[in-house]
Amino acid sequence: MTTYVLLHGGGMGGWVWRHVAAPLRTAGHEVLTPTFTGFGERVHLLSKDHGHDVNVQDVIGVLRYEDVRDAVLVGHSYAGSVIPGVVAQEGDRVRHIVYLDAMMSRSGESVFETMGYATRDELPGIRAAIQAGQAGPGTGVHLQERQRLTAAPFDMPTERQEWLLDHLSDMPMRVVTDPVAVGVETLPHTTDYIVAKNDPTMATSQERAVELGWQVHEWKADHGFIIGRAGELADFLLSHG
């Protein structure tokens, strides 16, 4: 039996893995789907005082208190920035890592920098504004994504698209503007990375996975393939766990 720890992306929560977790459990495996502080059903904890390091500790706490060993750690989108910090502290609990079109932030770089949303010189001013209550504390990603995906839906059944839009939540601004303490350059070359070829959202991160010599798999898919192609993704995880 394998323990899969599935980590969600921005504006989402553990709920997003429903269609991936079910077949993994049916196959006899344990599946944990934690939600980061300030996201999903924990959005009531959104605060200007909770930064990126809190999300790293969220996952570390799950690994420790669930007595997880020999895990397959899987991250989508934003979660890619969290995984290296988890592995740095609890790497002996992780057997394999899979990135699903996920964030490839380097040590000392914020998610906003990785995405090209802000320069390093601009970030101190943004962080000061957050602490002063002049910006944030949320990013408003749920509103932005609802507008974007209503105009250009993901490749998935209509009912799943509606389910996704209904469940999107805000997320803390600090988690994307804080420097990432431990970056992807620290992870092993055996890490698998699925590239969503039909979506430029993670273009920089996709390029970095190739540069680092990771095991790159190109899918003709968009960034929402974790829902739109959940069954195929579950099969991939079963064969690469």
Results as ranks from 00 to 15, higher is better:
Glu185Phe: 04
Glu66Gly: 02
His96Ile: 04
Gly91Cys: 10
Arg95His: 11
Leu149Lys: 03
Glu66Pro: 02
Leu63Pro: 01
His167Asp: 13
Gly80Arg: 15
Asp192Glu: 02
Met1Gln: 01
Met171Gln: 15
Leu100Phe: 02
Tyr117Asp: 14
Ala27Phe: 09
Glu232Asp: 07
His189Ser: 11
Thr190Ala: 06
Gly125Ile: 04
Ala230Cys: 01
Glu145Trp: 14
Pro84Gln: 14
Arg69Pro: 02
Tyr78Cys: 11
Ser110Gly: 15
Met104Ala: 15
Val82Thr: 14
Gly125Thr: 08
Leu164Glu: 10
Lys220Tyr: 13
Thr37Asp: 04
Phe154Gly: 04
Trp219Gly: 10
Tyr193Leu: 03
Gly125Gln: 05
Val5Leu: 08
Arg208Ile: 15
Ser169Asn: 07
Gly10His: 08
Trp219Ile: 09
Asn198Thr: 00
Phe112Pro: 10
Ser205Phe: 07
Gly13Tyr: 10
Gly51His: 02
Arg229Lys: 04
Gln134Ser: 12
Arg146Cys: 11
Ala135Asn: 08
Val180His: 15
Leu123Val: 10
Gln147Ser: 14
Val87Pro: 03
His50Tyr: 00
Val86Gly: 11
Ser47Ala: 01
Val74Leu: 08
Val176Met: 15
Glu122Tyr: 08
Arg160Met: 09
Glu162Leu: 08
Val72Phe: 05
Thr37Leu: 03
Ala128Asp: 13
Gln134Pro: 02
Pro124Phe: 01
Met103Tyr: 10
Pro188Asp: 02
Lys48Glu: 07
Gly38Ala: 05
Val16Ser: 12
Val56Asp: 08
Pro179Lys: 15
Gln147Phe: 13
Val111Gln: 11
Asp67Leu: 03
His217Pro: 03
Ile97Cys: 02
Pro34Thr: 06
Asp49Leu: 00
Arg229Met: 01
Arg127Pro: 02
Lys48Arg: 06
Ala21Met: 09
Ala129Tyr: 09
Val68Ala: 10
Glu30Trp: 04
Thr186Met: 03
Thr150Trp: 01
Gly61Gln: 10
Tyr4Glu: 00
Thr204Gln: 08
Gly40His: 02
Pro157Glu: 06
Met12Asn: 12
Asp155Val: 12
Pro200Trp: 07
Thr3His: 00
